[in-house]
Simulated assay, not measured.
Amino acid sequence: MKRVSIHMWLTLIFVSSILGIILVACGSNQPIQIGFIGSITGRLADMGMSARNAVQLAVEQCNEQGGIRGRRVTLIIKDDRQDAETALQAIQELIAANVVAVVGPLVSNMATVVVPHLNEAQLLTVAPTVTTPHLSGQDDYFFRVCIASQEHAFRSARYQIESGDMRRVAVVYDGGNRTFSENWLANFKKPFVAGGGKILTFIEYKEKDGRSFSDIARELLAAEPDGILIIANPMDSGLLCQQIRQADASIKITLSNWGASQRLLEMGGNAVEGVTLPIAFDWDSPSPPYLTFRKKYLERYQREPGFAGVYAYDAAQVVLTALKASELQKPLKAVLLSIGEFDGLQGKIRFDAYGDVAPAHASIRIVRNRKFVVVE
């Protein structure tokens, strides 16, 4: 009896060892999962779809090149619908799915909602287009590949003062992304007022408040400004420009960098001709990686990637590069910080110890013949 028990025990050890080897081998071939979160429906869908498409392209290219040490990468896509509860649920689902990192979110309001939960889970996120300074200078799991919003706002204010185009300004901003909008306005107002400008009035609107853009346009013009500043998403910016131009065809209009996308041109039509805006992104960049990416993106999706697509591709490549340099044992955040510098489509991406990138020069552009043309 004792001999049988020993035999059975040895057999169990042998079988367990074989099963363990099989499970390890199978586990090592399991796909590596990355999450994506952004608004891919509603008024921000143009940015969300551009970003999602670019991340999908980056993942496909990675898999075509052999994946991560032979393991395929899969992308789990979540739509936050620009809604806090939806975003939180999406993040919890990504955490439960054991993704190794997240690309997104895309707007500041959603970032301030989900980043605390990502920090609690110690899950790295690389945001393509989140510009709020409220997440700057923090030792957390939030990284971004774009510059913070104050650089754009300062540049816009200085341009308006130096050019003399706008001295008396009425402002309308999207309260649905208040974290971005109010900060952008504050950073614009300080140098603008110091330079002799005056903010006559400001109007906050939200998608659900029921106010028509024609009513907002009339209220803005009632203050008798010589210019109007719109801080809103591309779709709303274009529609607001239409209503403002219908009431006053000659009034000068400037936008925040948030409005700078193909969607603005599509929704605004002739009403956005002559509109100015500040942005660090360069549609005309001669960078070979950018030109190659843009060509592939156009062939695949038949539309321009815009700044959201380019920055999302950069964010995805940051994650994929860190994964390739990691053995999935060292925390991905530590790997990313140890690398420090990454190749972006339009130049180097250099992270500081807090996951922020160095400030970059924002140019002033004007819409001419449905193109964003550099003014200075």
Results as ranks from 00 to 15, higher is better:
V59T: 09
V59A: 11
V59M: 09
Q61D: 14
Q61C: 02
C62F: 01
C62Q: 14
C62G: 00
N63K: 10
N63M: 12
E64Y: 12
E64C: 07
Q65A: 15
G66W: 09
G67D: 06
G67S: 10
G67K: 04
G67F: 06
I68T: 03
I68H: 02
I68F: 04
I68K: 01
R69H: 14
R69A: 13
G70E: 05
G70W: 04
G70R: 07
R71I: 10
V73K: 02
T74C: 12
L75E: 11
L75T: 12
L75K: 11
I76W: 01
I77E: 11
I77D: 05
I77C: 05
D79G: 09
D79C: 10
D79Q: 08
D80Y: 01
D80H: 06
D80K: 01
R81V: 02
D83R: 06
D83G: 06
D83M: 03
A84F: 01
A84W: 00
E85N: 11
T86C: 08
T86I: 10
T86E: 13
A87E: 01
L88F: 00
Q89H: 11
Q89S: 13
Q89P: 00
A90M: 07
A90S: 15
I91R: 05
I91Q: 04
I91N: 01
I91D: 02
Q92N: 15
E93W: 07
L94R: 04
I95V: 15
I95W: 10
A96S: 14
A97V: 10
A97F: 12
N98F: 04
N98I: 01
N98V: 01
V100A: 05
V100P: 00
V100S: 07
V102T: 09
V102D: 04
V103T: 13
V103R: 00
V103A: 14
G104K: 04
P105K: 05
L106R: 01
V107P: 00
N109T: 13
M110V: 14
M110L: 13
A111S: 13
A111R: 02
T112H: 03
V113I: 14
V114Y: 00
V115A: 06
V115Y: 00
V115E: 06
V115Q: 14
V115G: 00
P116C: 10
P116A: 11
H117I: 13
H117S: 14
L118G: 04
L118D: 03
L118P: 00
N119D: 14
E120D: 11
E120G: 01
A121Q: 08
Q122Y: 10
Q122C: 13
Q122N: 14
L123C: 13
L123V: 12
L124E: 06
V126R: 06
A127G: 07
P128W: 02
P128S: 10
P128N: 09
P128D: 07
T129D: 07
T129C: 12
T132D: 03
T132P: 01
T132I: 05
T132A: 04
P133H: 09
P133G: 08
P133K: 11
L135I: 06
L135H: 01
S136C: 08
S136L: 01
S136A: 11
